[in-house]
Each structure stands twice: as structure tokens, then as C-alpha cells.
């Protein structure tokens, strides 16, 4: 019994898992952006950036999220890209 309790405490509540998964899937549904489209976008961004900097492709994270538009506070889709740079290329 104690073991079970410990187990349930250490694991995330299933409703939080559901909520997180739902939020992600709705971002894609609402923006009408498929994972394939995102993949294409990601590789194009990487290709362009690679001309200037060396990128840590392992740490690359490109995803869709939502943000509040400043003008009227409405929620709009946003592309968030976290692209770790190893070093700037010598452009001499």
C-alpha cells in the first residue's frame, strides 16, 4: 500500500498529462499546422542559419505555441524556436 502511495505521488497526475497533451494538440489544430509542415520549416530555418552560425542540432527545439497579441490582447499562434549556437562562423 505504502509502495503504491509512493508510486502515485512520484508520478504526475494523469489529468495534468491529459491537459498538457490536449494543449499541444489544440495548438496544431487551431493553427492548422501539421508536424510535417513544422519539420519543413525547421529544416529551412536551420539551413539559412547554418550559413552564419554553427548550430547544436541536438539541442534544437522548434514548436508552435500561443501568445497574446499586444494590440488587442487576443490569443494568436506563435512559432517558438530555441536554437543553441555553438559558434559564429567567420565571415571574412
Amino acid at each position: 500500500m505504502d509502495f503504491l502511495k509512493m508510486f502515485s505521488k512520484s508520478s504526475k497526475n494523469s489529468k495534468n498529462v491529459a491537459k498538457e497533451r490536449l494543449k499541444l494538440v489544440l495548438i496544431h489544430d487551431r493553427a492548422d499546422i501539421s508536424p510535417k509542415f513544422l519539420q519543413m520549416l525547421e529544416s529551412d530555418i536551420v539551413r539559412v542559419m547554418s550559413e552564419y552560425v554553427e548550430i547544436d542540432e541536438e539541442g534544437l527545439d522548434v514548436k508552435m505555441t500561443r501568445t497574446k497579441r499586444e494590440s488587442d490582447g487576443s490569443s494568436v499562434p506563435a512559432l517558438v524556436a530555441n536554437i543553441p549556437i555553438i559558434k559564429v562562423k567567420d565571415r571574412g
Binding site: 497526475n13 494523469s14 489529468k15 495534468n16 491537459k19 490536449l22 494543449k23 489544440l26 490569443s75
Partner: peptide, 18 residues
């Protein structure tokens, strides 16, 4: 189930669907 955290509650759903 809501009490145990195994079902989304009312606030969760309103929050998501707005």
C-alpha cells in the same frame, strides 16, 4: 476522479476551450 487528479476539472476545460 477529479479529486484524485485523474480527471480534468471544470476550470481545466474552461481554460482550454475559452
Amino acid at each position: 476522479m477529479v479529486k484524485k487528479g485523474d480527471m480534468m476539472n471544470i476550470e481545466d476545460m474552461i481554460d482550454i476551450l475559452a
